[in-house]
Every structure is written in C-alpha cells, then in structure tokens.
Amino acid sequence: MDPEREPLAGGGLQRRPVAAARGGGAQEPPPRGQQHAIHADIDPQPRPWPGMQKLAIAAIVVLGCLQFLPATHFRDPADPRRNWIPFDGPRNPTDSLNEVGSVDVFSWINCLDLRTLAVLTNSTLSSSSDPLNISFHFLIPEGGNDKLPYHKLKVVLPDSNLTITSQKQIKDKLNVATPEGNFVWSFLKELSPLVIATTQFSKKRYVYASADSIIKGKIEDLGRLDLGIYAIAAVEDCSKRFGDYVSMDVLNAIQRTATKTWMSQEPYDKDTCLLDLDVLLVEPRKLEKNLVTSIIWWANAVNIVNPRDRVRLAIALAFYDKYLKLPLNWKRANANADILNYDGPKNVCSEDGRQHEQAGYGEIWHQYLHKKSEAILSA
C-alpha cells in the first residue's frame, strides 16, 4: 500500500500531505483557544512587561512600610469566630487601661477608721474576678498624716492598689468661703459621691462606695457599665418617695413659675423614688456644670424641716429622669445583696468632732480582716 495514502472511513484512500508524513515542514496551528507550550530548549526567554520589576519592588516597599502603622483592629481570643474588632479607645496604653480595663473605686470617710477601709478593700477584691485591675482612692479627714494610714493598709493588704488623700484638696477646690462651697461642705455625707468629681475630671468614670460597706458583688460589673447618655448610675431608694416629702401641688407650682434649665419638661411623679447614695457610678465629664447650683436651688425651693432629707430630695430632683438605674441587688437589703453594712467596731465622730468607738454587732467583717491585722490598724 502506498505509504502516502490512508484508508477512508468508507473504505477509500486519501493522500497525506508529504511534509506531514515525513515529519518535515510547518505544523498545523493549534486549535483556537489553546496556547503554545513553551519549550525551554527551543523557544526564546519571554520578556517581562516594561517597568514590571520596578513596580514589584515598589509594592514590596509599600507593604513593608504598612507594618509600621499602629494596629486598628484586634481579635478577641474568646470569640470562636475570631472576628476583627476595631479599636475605639485611645492609642495611649495607660489611658486605654484607665478607660476600659481598670476600675477606680472612691470612698469618703468622715471619721477615720482604717478597719472599715480595709474591710471595704478586701471584700471588694475577694469578690472580684479581676482584682488586679481595681484601684482604691480614699479621701480621709484633713489634719492627719496621710502616709501613716497608707503604710498601715499596705502592710495588711500588700497586693492592693490604693491611694490615700486628704479631703483638703476637695475643700480647696470648693472654696468653702463662698455660700455654694459652704453649703456643699455642710452636707458632705450626702454630696461627697458627686463632689469627688470636681477633682477627678481626668477620670473617665469611677465607682463611689460608702466607706462602711462590705462588697459581695463584682465591682467591675458596675465600673464597666455603659451609661449611654447619663452621667451617673444609682440604685433607687423607694423607702421614701417624692410625695412623702413635698406636696405635689407645691412642686407643680414651682415647675410652672420657675424657668430653670434643670427643670423637667414633664410633670413630676409623686411616686418617684429617691437615690440610694451608697453606691454610684459616675462619669465626671458628663455631669452638668450647674449641677451643684441646681441642687442648692432645689434645696431652697422645697420646704422640708430635716435639712438632710431636703438635700436628698434636692439631689433626686436635680437628677429627675437623668440617671441609669442600677440593679436592686446593689441596695443594702439582706445577706444576699451585693453590698452589706459593715458590722464590725468602728470609730464615730460627733458633731463637735469628738471621736469614740462604736461596738460591732456582726461577724461578717471577720471574714475580711484578721485579728492581727485589726491590731495593726487600731494602733
């Protein structure tokens, strides 16, 4: 058979191209859509696009520089989805810890007794799940030695983070020579949770706890609450209500005739509760600049015989519909509450400044203060 002939499908023969049969000549082009294979031993080296090497070097340099930019997002290890979360806080690590991680606890004590402060500190730390991020700031009566109480507390509670400051700094800030400053200084028992804010505007927020307290709850749950638009968060004290102190006709008449910026636009409710001042969460920067003025104005506007009840009512009226309500478990009620009364012996001061010891009536305080520590603090 002719080698240049191939059988046809129908039995006939066709002639092959001579060049193809003999392996010489040009090959047929590949089908459309298919690329030529590169034969390294035959085809010339492909040429890169002009400037491509310079572009690649520039891209490497840019990506390297991006590594020096500050982080904008992070991943929470506890998040199973490992979502990226933006950093909303300040870039300063100290400020970030102060505003997000740490909790500042302030307390004001009118008659110095280190036993109560030690129990407050130790009970708070013992109940906390994050004790390393809790700081205590105690304001003690002026005239004493601030360093000695500090050293005594550090001996008893060496791992605590605390500062002790004289109340003189508050007094100097208030300028008690003025009627406003003298009024506030006369009612520090009621106003101290708010007065502390006058010297703490560098703090984003703080928790105020009454010095004669045993904390059973987690203070960080309070310190990290979202206050939203409010400046304070407080527990309601419904043992007394507006209607128990003042006639609502009188209060409505005051509302109609007075044109003050702090006056509520809605009618006051006679069943509104007062504020419990044993525990407060305060954001100093959100407090109204005329807060003290409004409290003094309300104290003069309502006619109540007991001056301390008058001030408590004035505080509640100044914050009418302007505070976040804390859970009721942060009100002293029973042994299951998150805050209890200090039940040990303590120093009390009379109106004339004389000091004497009041006997204790309970045993809970012993859980947070050893007898040897009590001896050190009482000396």
Rank of each mutant, 00 (worst) to 15 (best):
A209P: 00
A211F: 09
A211C: 08
A211G: 08
A211S: 15
S213M: 08
I214T: 14
I214N: 00
I214C: 07
I215D: 06
I215A: 01
I215F: 03
I215P: 00
K216H: 08
K216Q: 13
G217Q: 06
K218Y: 05
K218H: 08
K218S: 13
E220L: 01
E220A: 03
L222Y: 06
G223R: 05
D226I: 09
G228H: 06
I229A: 10
Y230W: 13
A231W: 04
A231T: 14
A231C: 05
A233C: 03
A233N: 04
A233R: 07
A234N: 06
A234M: 05
A234Q: 09
E236P: 02
D237Y: 13
C238P: 02
K240A: 14
K240R: 13
R241W: 05
F242S: 05
G243W: 10
Y245I: 13
V246R: 08
V246T: 15
V246Q: 12
M248K: 02
D249W: 02
D249Q: 12
L251T: 04
N252M: 15
A253H: 11
A253M: 11
A253Q: 15
A253I: 00
I254F: 10
I254D: 04
I254R: 12
R256E: 14
T257F: 02
A258H: 09
T259I: 08
T259P: 00
T259H: 12
K260G: 07
K260F: 07
K260R: 15
T261K: 13
W262D: 11
M263L: 14
Q265A: 10
Q265I: 02
Q265E: 11
E266F: 07
E266Q: 06
E266M: 00
E266D: 13
Y268I: 00
Y268K: 04
Y268P: 00
